[in-house]
């Protein structure tokens, strides 16, 4: 029952959703209300998932600290800040509070910094990876240079046609390729969803599938 019940719930919920989406409310009048109710349930479950994540994270890191595993000192920092943010967040919510200050200056700025230093890795990687080793690599190199110049004002200063060329690359070869990827990924998503609804895919239940 530990697996059959979740699969049954999943199948019923999915069936309601699919039927309500593809069959007109005049034929299935209860559909929109059922979907609305399911959406509310989803939001509740989603919010509860935060609590599950909190417990899971605490379990992992408390175990790491007590067993003195590699990097246990970082786990202490993580647990300390998680507890601090939780306590402050519960008792002092809103703008201008301690939790807001910690969030803005201890969390947001380091995250923005982490993201921005990617530019150094990209510069180094571009220098090493963009080599004219084959025809395909050469095409990629030329397209990359046009795009880099086209996205910065300097490209227009060098030659007025560069922004037009970069727009053409974005609008035609890129859009065509991305459409193919999007359609293929969506079809893959539909297939995976079907496998989950029919109970063929059971990885999310802790099993190994078929």
């Amino acid at each position: 029952m530990r697996k059959e019940l979740p699969i049954a719930i999943c199948a019923v919920a999915a069936l309601i959703y699919v039927v309500s989406t593809y069959i007109s409310p005049t034929v299935f009048p209860a559909g929109p209300e059922l979907v609305r109710e399911l959406n509310v349930w989803y939001l509740l479950v989603f919010a509860c998932a935060f609590a599950v994540g909190l417990v899971n994270l605490a379990q992992i890191h408390i175990r790491r600290i007590t067993q003195r595993r590699e990097g246990w000192q970082f786990s202490i920092i993580l647990m300390s800040f998680m507890t601090l943010m939780l306590v402050l967040g519960v008792f002092t919510t809103g703008r201008g509070t301690y939790s807001d200050w910690l969030y803005q200056y201890w969390f947001v700025n380091p995250r923005a910094t982490m993201y921005s230093i990617l530019v150094f890795y990209i510069a180094s990687a571009a220098y090493r990876a963009f080599r004219v080793k084959s025809f395909e690599a050469s095409v990629l190199l030329v397209a990359a240079i046009i795009m880099m110049l086209g996205q910065a004002p300097i490209g227009e200063v060098i030659w007025g046609q560069i922004p037009k060329m970069s727009r053409w690359i974005l609008n035609y070869p890129n859009a065509a390729g991305m459409r193919g990827i999007t359609i293929a990924a969506t079809l893959g998503g539909v297939a995976t969803a079907l496998r989950i609804v029919l109970g063929i895919e059971r990885g999310h239940l802790g099993g190994m599938g078929e």
Binding site: Y127, F130, R131, I145, A152
Partner: peptide, 20 residues
Amino acid sequence: QSLSHLLIIVFIGLGNLAYL
């Protein structure tokens, strides 16, 4: 952004010259 993109292009050019 303009100068950083230019710098990357210069390095790509240098790398390819050395490679060729």
